[in-house]
Design a protein around this nucleic acid. Sequence first.
DNA 1: GAGTGGTCTAGACCACTGT
DNA 2: CAGTGGTCTAGACCACTCC
Lengths: 219, 219
Amino acid sequence: MQEEVLRRIRTLEWAPGNQIPNETDLAREFGCARATVNRALQSLAEAGLLERRRRAGTRVAALPVRHAKLRIPILRQEIEANGQAYGYRLLECETTPASERAEQLFGKAKLLHVLALHFANDEPYVHEDRWINIDAIPTATEVDFSKISANEWLVTNAPISTGEIAFEADAADHTEASIFGCKLGAALFRAERTTWHDGAPVTFVRQTFLPGHRLVMRI
Amino acid sequence: MQEEVLRRIRTLEWAPGNQIPNETDLAREFGCARATVNRALQSLAEAGLLERRRRAGTRVAALPVRHAKLRIPILRQEIEANGQAYGYRLLECETTPASERAEQLFGKAKLLHVLALHFANDEPYVHEDRWINIDAIPTATEVDFSKISANEWLVTNAPISTGEIAFEADAADHTEASIFGCKLGAALFRAERTTWHDGAPVTFVRQTFLPGHRLVMRI
DNA sequence: GAGTGGTCTAGACCACTGT
DNA sequence: CAGTGGTCTAGACCACTCC
């Protein structure tokens, strides 16, 4: 049923921009209940292939905005899924005044600053620079982040509601060059993630990956 | 209903790894039909917050793999959505033997090679290097890609079933340095997309963004 | 084998919105 | 205001899988 609809879209039998029959008619044609048609079409709409509006009906998306789903695993899982041995080392962990960047986000909140390295087969894989809002998660000060990565601890101990993740390319600074053994200014892949709970920022982390890292998604 | 479940997960009232009541019980508790509970829980499972298995029941994900949805818009839409004027220029378009990289993917297929620039407010925004499998889309040879970008033409004229997109940071080569007015070796953000239809590769495109570009997603 | 989620049906009412 | 999708109910049967 959903596959037949997909086929008609893909073969351009139902061309981009065109309206398709309404749910009741499709239900009759396929000999199934309207609820079944509804689920199938909603799923395709969510995937960006259809555009649905009440009264206006359902159309094949003219410029289908494809959606890719990005799995954001814990780094340990990502590394172990690649068949490599995971390692972790805490570099620095202190309550400290916010950097300029962190202050923009957190304001005057009390912050914990955590620097750490994640290893794959004993090679540096990610350099992590994290700020944690102590006002939002007071128990964070009692954790020994040399034993468990902030990455994993937060996942199970911080109630998180929304977040944003951004990716960019940037030049390696002195620290990163020495960590990854690359040249100063080499192109590195960065991910910056911010999470909020109840409108308050909980943590901001900048993860810098080893040179040559690729982020891959299926469409 | 879904919100109440979400609340219990977020406040750790239902802690990671713990089993939650089954659908029938929840339906009774919330005074709604089981189908309603089912939809709510399935939606949360899709978001990575719950893990569901028949007979074993539903658990709060121990290490919730968060999913971010990446919208992959047509470049024109992306640029215009930023309130900038979209521009496009074809640099080169010819049927040509595959590059080493392209040959890996397409084998001996007949290929069209398209080089183009996308502009935002007359500034170079993306450099696009694309290979199109003519055997898969014969009509591509009849299109004037100086008038419409391959990006937009393919979306409405190529039946696409699956795809993969990868992001990486890379050093600017001579061409890119002169296009974007940056230094040789500067860090640039690249996206490489491959699409297939019926198991055959349709197109491979490498898009290189202007220095400082960020890809942002909500979680 | 029994209990769980997965999926369907048939029907109902509602919310929105284009005409 | 009429037609569309959005969502719910109550019930049924099935598929899987853990015990």
